[in-house]
Write a protein that binds this DNA or RNA. Sequence first.
DNA 1: AAGTGTATAATTGTATACAAAAATACACGT
DNA 2: ACGTGTATTTTTGTATACAATTATACACTT
Lengths: 215, 215
Amino acid sequence: MDDNQSLGQRVFHRIREDILSGKYGKDEELKEKTIGDELGVSRTPVREALRQLELEGLVTIIPNKGAYVVGFSAQDIHDIYEIRSLLEGLCARWAAKRATPEQLEALEEIMMLSDFKVQRGHFDQLVELDNKFHQQLYEASGSKVLEHVLRNYHHYVERARKMTLPVPKRSVESNEEHRQILAAIRDKDEDQAEVLANRHMMNTIQNFDRLYLRK
Amino acid sequence: MDDNQSLGQRVFHRIREDILSGKYGKDEELKEKTIGDELGVSRTPVREALRQLELEGLVTIIPNKGAYVVGFSAQDIHDIYEIRSLLEGLCARWAAKRATPEQLEALEEIMMLSDFKVQRGHFDQLVELDNKFHQQLYEASGSKVLEHVLRNYHHYVERARKMTLPVPKRSVESNEEHRQILAAIRDKDEDQAEVLANRHMMNTIQNFDRLYLRK
DNA sequence: AAGTGTATAATTGTATACAAAAATACACGT
DNA sequence: ACGTGTATTTTTGTATACAATTATACACTT
């Protein structure tokens, strides 16, 4: 792991993980001193982290009172996927319009690696490549703003994805959908790229719901 | 203004305003001590604010080096409006599906007030009501996540809106569009609500572009 | 004059100290 | 027993102190 980042950032990521993983439950109070002692740091970096987490919506801070974990439900994750569905569509559309040759090349490379991993049955390593594909797509949209919001959401549901993608069947399907999206972008077919990216996310939702909402 | 919030939050809002208003230009270095001295506070609240601003994408922090203003262009604002167009559409759709009677009532009330202000020609006071209408709509979506992201963007472009909405003609149009969206929500016509909210935002984009991108 | 190395200053990162507010404990009166 | 007021403790908010890192100045060499 990247070790030369500031304590504040490390604490931020750590607490976020602990919230997303459920270590800290809904409405639990996060005390600066307690967390600081646990992580072996002073209150200062912890405070910074908590303030950041509030902005992410994972924590509510009541002034002079404390920081409380904002619970997030399976419904919330579902909502995020729906939002992402729209935004990934827009992203694919813009990528089709403005991706540079280098960005396209990067996408092709990730695609090739993914195919390789699928062939070899290394489904676990596909999670990381799925990450990379989407991140690269965000960059290819050419929009700083869109990239920023999608990155956020992407990370938000990372935990959910880690649990759902390793289902081998879905993983192969997902890879196939990536291929089609990439083809549409290569052809500069904006409408098609948007529709496919949209559908890709909707399929991911279904997969998630099947596992967690039992619909 | 709300005065009983923490210094950190006040500094956060202040610096954000100063970035959005252009007081701090692109790539400008924000030094903790300098800002602290200007605002009459110590470095601690300033640091907290800068860490939060980084998360919002307004500032880049290079560890051990400094915080730098991330410039945002008219293109960025345009992008935000396009993103909002999709999300406001989704929001209206969900509001049509799940708005409570109380939330509907609140929307009706804002609508009525807006009509009144239009009739009287008090276009300046419509900005605030436009705010309220959208904020209430976000709440009516029943999705914490969607509400969160839309609030963010809404505030982000607040400055742009303050400059574009007071154009009386647009202001009347906008009010009319709100009325139609509200009607669709009242009728629980999800598709119609989405389309109208979508179009509403697209019209806002056009108004913005006409003024700032000269298209 | 250009480049290099080193001392110095400025700036950020973290911990700690102190102030303010809130939570808790507990004696007291009813 | 129950509420109430007060003292005590805990926790947050802010400032400051010190450490680590980076930027700057400047003498020195070539």
